[in-house]
């Protein structure tokens, strides 16, 4: 009885896992097949090779796109880590006038959808001469209310005695932050950093309207570019680029899974 139940459970797990993974697995499989086989509907073909990847790298700018995404996501990640940490530190550890008011002003930006700000932002970035450039793709995202909030929550968990202790042994503010607070809250910091990277690697709308050339175009918009170009029917190559683009974030997710499980739940996310 117990054995039967367990078997059913496994069968269910495997079936559903296959179903959930199907789009991804099929995509990976197709990326290994020659386009001729795909078009002919020969999915059971065994002609697998990495030729599509080689072709993607040689004939499309996908590597450049990925490099752009890496630069953009990393810059935003570092920017947010610094800017959000500083603000969260002030809200968690400092006393100042209008603290509640300013905190509220930060929080309220979580209510305002970025989609409603793109038109003026586009105009601002154009006026700054930042269209189709790294600054235009990164600087608007150097802070996030969500990040400030999440880090503040973590910082508030730092026992007050650690602040007192750091005063006793003569640590300055910045030292307290870097040598005690950040290591103490490092699991939240890691979650935050991974999440920021993931979010901005996957960003679509903003790069769509502000990049016009391959020089600064990041991966997600690059996918649209490739899909709408002459390669349109070369399914093998298209799938290979899509897999290349999703691989870094998939790896981050697999490695950082446990952080997301704990961290996101506690803070409450998704921007």
């Amino acid at each position: 009885m117990k054995y039967a139940k367990r078997t059913i459970h496994y069968v269910l797990l495997i079936l559903i896992a296959l179903l959930v993974m199907a789009p991804l697995l099929l995509g990976i499989w197709a990326s290994l097949l020659p386009t001729t086989d795909i078009v002919a509907g020969h999915f059971n073909s065994l002609n697998i090779s990495l030729n599509n990847y080689v072709a993607a790298i040689q004939t499309t700018p996908v590597v450049l796109y990925m490099w752009n995404s890496l630069v953009i996501s990393s810059l935003i990640m570092v920017g947010q880590l610094i800017f959000c940490t500083l603000a969260a530190y002030a809200f968690a550890f400092l006393q100042f006038r209008f603290k509640n008011g300013i905190f509220f002003a930060f929080l309220i930006t979580m209510m305002l959808p970025f989609e409603a700000q793109i038109i003026p932002n586009f105009q601002t970035v154009r006026a700054l001469g930042w269209l189709d450039s790294y600054p235009g793709l990164t600087i608007p995202f150097f802070t996030s209310a969500f990040g400030v909030f999440m880090l503040r929550q973590a910082f508030l968990q730092v026992p007050r005695e650690l602040k007192e202790y750091s005063d006793l042994i003569g640590l300055g503010r910045l030292q307290f932050l870097t040598r005690i607070v950040l290591p103490y809250t490092r699991s939240t910091i890691i979650t935050f950093v991974l999440y920021t990277f993931l979010t901005h690697w996957n960003a679509y709308l903003w790069p769509l309207i502000t990049t016009f050339s391959d020089a600064h175009r990041p991966t997600q918009v690059g996918l649209k570019q490739l899909q709408s170009e002459d390669t349109f029917n070369n399914w093998g190559v298209i799938m290979a680029t899509a897999i290349m683009v999703l691989l870094p974030t998939l790896l981050i997710l697999i490695i950082g899974q446990r952080y997301f499980r704990k961290g996101l739940n506690a803070g409450g996310v998704k921007g």
Binding site: A17, V20, M21, P23, L24, L26, G27, A30, I38, V39, G41, L198, W201, N202, Y204, T219, Q220, V221, L223, K224, Q227, W235, I238, M239, A242, I243, V245, L246, T249, L250, L251, I252, L253, I254, Q257, F260
Partner: peptide, 27 residues
């Protein structure tokens, strides 16, 4: 767990390509 969580690691754009492929009338 990793399998079920995996879609979070797939961007909307990449996922769209995967699904376009599934929905394509000929292939």
């Amino acid at each position: 767990r990793t399998a079920f969580a995996s879609t979070m690691g797939v961007s909307a754009a990449a996922a769209s390509i995967l699904w376009i492929f599934l929905f394509n009338p000929s292939v």
